[in-house]
Amino acid sequence: MHMLEISAISRVFNAEVVVENVSLQVAEGEIVSIVGPSGCGKTTLLRIAAGLLTPTSGTVLLHAGRIGFVFQDSALLPWQNVHENAALLASDADKEFVETLLERTGLSGHRHKWPHELSGGMKMRLSLVRTLAMRPSVVLADEPFGALDQMTRQHLQDELLFLHSLHAFTILLVTHAIDEAVYLSDRVVTMSAAPGRFIRSTQVAFERPRNPDLRYSAEFAALCGRVADSLRRTSP
């Protein structure tokens, strides 16, 4: 069953076509990544999917539940402590769920800290917790780990997969890191430079749960190479 259906989306900003005729279906529980050169309209597409931006044409259909959004730079509210940030989007009935998520991500010991006292990795974890606390059926993530160092990045990728295995949500993720897209996803969609169009969808058949060592295997590298190749061919 499809959870999210994006049909023929186009978006024009000041007479400039940013996203052109993009369609994508994401199945329930599936993880799909969109990779593309910077400025190809990935973020625009994601904001349209979240209902934060209206498309010039096309439709977005969410078949059940709610959409959660993970922002690029964690976007924590600096005047709220860790616990308040975590509970920002949660309903009152989900107070205990927030606690569970904080515990699961190792943040419960930092509940009274301000965001500026957290490391980059902890900030992103908290941002994930905040999104998951609203029990979304679909999580849209806009380059969530882009600002992190390689080690932290890999840790968080595994944590995201762990949370995904526990809470069964659908993920549509935008990234510019091909290895991240391949490691996390069931499917990687490549997008062309502006105006952004979908050019290719690559299935990723590695078994789940993903083994962290997968990143250093030959098959993994080969698949990354294929995605990179399809990206290269589109750039002018």
């Binding site: 959004f69 922002f71 976007a75 509210l77 005047w79 989007l89």
Partner: peptide, 24 residues
Amino acid sequence: AWRDLFVLRKATPLQTVRELWFPA
């Protein structure tokens, strides 16, 4: 992103002023 957050939260205009504009 903070503004988007309050849209996703379905905050009322008054809530947005009180809980986002004011502290920010």
